[in-house]
Amino acid sequence: MLTRLANPATFMRVSGYALPPLATAAALLAAYGLYLAFLASPADYQQGETVRIMYIHVPAAWLSLFFYSIMTVSALGTLVWRHPLADVSQRAAAPIGAAFTLVCLVTGSLWGKPMWGTYWVWDARLTSVLVLFLMYCGILTLWRALDDPGRAARAVAILTLVGAVNVPIVKFSVEWWSTLHQGASVFRIGGPLIDPAMLRPLFCMALAFTCFGLALHLAGMRTEILRRRVRTLTLLQAERLERAAA
């Protein structure tokens, strides 16, 4: 499957079919998720109405790590397997991951002010997520800084693999250090600590965010393939014109 999709023409055809259903699923799930979040779920006994911020904060946090994981696998694909679409995938994933991390940071701050009395604390979880956001920004900047796409791909892949150390730090920071941020309450041994009435909007929004992110990733990869075609044709055209002039 992966080998067949390595052909950009095949990928363009298959992704062209997959994109509309993914985007539709994202829109429908988001609409149902918003209904559950605002109209069909109760306020929390401690957090009150601010629990509704969790229905976007938590999925954004999950996807910020999910997209960095996609980038890490893609970086291995670039450096080890030299898969032709690995760099394309990494390049398309970076802005999406950065956006989800930004959503996570902004919504977390907006939840923190009424609940903790502050927008920000230098707690291990918050700081490691900020480092994740800075890694995304660094990766996006490095791509812009290097002209040669091959060199940029390798440099970004190495930086991505170095930054992957931060992924388990983000995940386990609440267990390794004493943090103001609460510990895991959904994916934990012994089952979730959250009431099903609140788990439903959370999972629905998480699915909506995942479909939305994957649709954007496919769309981004398609655009990146076109960008590379444009670059190749521009270079060929320049060579042709140079030969004609000589």
């Binding site: 109405e49 509704r52 911020i53 919504t107």
Partner: peptide, 25 residues
């Protein structure tokens, strides 16, 4: 949500910021 009261500004700001970032993407 009519009971969101004094926290409404934080809730709507969070959803507003998320919508803006998603639209931007």
């Amino acid at each position: 949500m009519e009971e969101a009261g004094r926290h409404a500004v934080f809730i709507w700001s969070a959803y507003g910021a998320t919508t803006l970032i998603a639209l931007g993407l």
